[in-house]
Design a protein around this nucleic acid. Sequence first.
DNA 1: TCCTCAATGTAGCCCCGGCTACATAAAGTG
DNA 2: CACTTTATGTAGCCGGGGCTACATTGAGGA
Lengths: 140, 140
Amino acid sequence: MSAGASRKSAARHDRVRRQHSEELAEDYVEAIAELLEKSGEARVKDLQGIFGVSHVSVIRALKRIEERGLIQRELRKGYTLTESGKSMAEESASRHNLVVNFLKALGVSASQAEADAEGMEHHLSRETLAAMKDFLSSNE
Amino acid sequence: MSAGASRKSAARHDRVRRQHSEELAEDYVEAIAELLEKSGEARVKDLQGIFGVSHVSVIRALKRIEERGLIQRELRKGYTLTESGKSMAEESASRHNLVVNFLKALGVSASQAEADAEGMEHHLSRETLAAMKDFLSSNE
DNA sequence: TCCTCAATGTAGCCCCGGCTACATAAAGTG
DNA sequence: CACTTTATGTAGCCGGGGCTACATTGAGGA
């Protein structure tokens, strides 16, 4: 019985660890999508500013994300999204908006809703996201 | 203006990174508290089962957590919590319960609520936690 | 044209959280 | 008492994300 509880718990922790390793890719892809929309270009420099890390960290992250087929380098024009990158960006963005709107509907201030969404959005199951959506539509 | 947005965004990402580095300590301290309550002992072996990692990872994590003054080794009896460890455990546990109850009140199944809480609980501001509490009490 | 400077890339280090393989200590059991 | 098993500890590797310092490159001004 205690072994059963442990097994369940271990699985949950494992899920959280996997979510963490996905966060960075999702954040980058989403940031690149926004940059492309806003200015037509997504450069290392921009991402460095957005994430508040050194350009080296950005470059290395972009390399791995490129290897995963989510983005492509364009000569002298920064990065663009592949098809799978685009769909990841769309999913991320809509999930982000859902979470922010949900928190605001709960009574959380806009700026705090943004901040909290950044951390929690990568850890929500479909079921919880659906429940948030239901809550929003039943509150209109 | 874009620099302003970047600065805000950088601060949010920085906060998320700091939260990540706290997660492990909080999870361990909470798990140890539960073990102590349940069986009077918290051993490496137990934690290994709970987190689903090797005993080596457990030992190393415990070392760092001990250096932070949150736990103490007892000869032949595993680990106990210091005062600050106890208060961290209490805060973690009550926050965890709040989040789980909130998700259940939203309509999420018990098991999924547990799983999602595990990931998101480390990323919620006081303001959001308060909003969740309000939601719960206005729904009784 | 040339030269400087900003942007990007590379080398190499740190810490953390995984891991396996090996070493020791404690507890059971014949 | 000796032997095996179980728990804990140590050594050392990997990958990811942080960094600084140095190298390259491309664009624009003197």
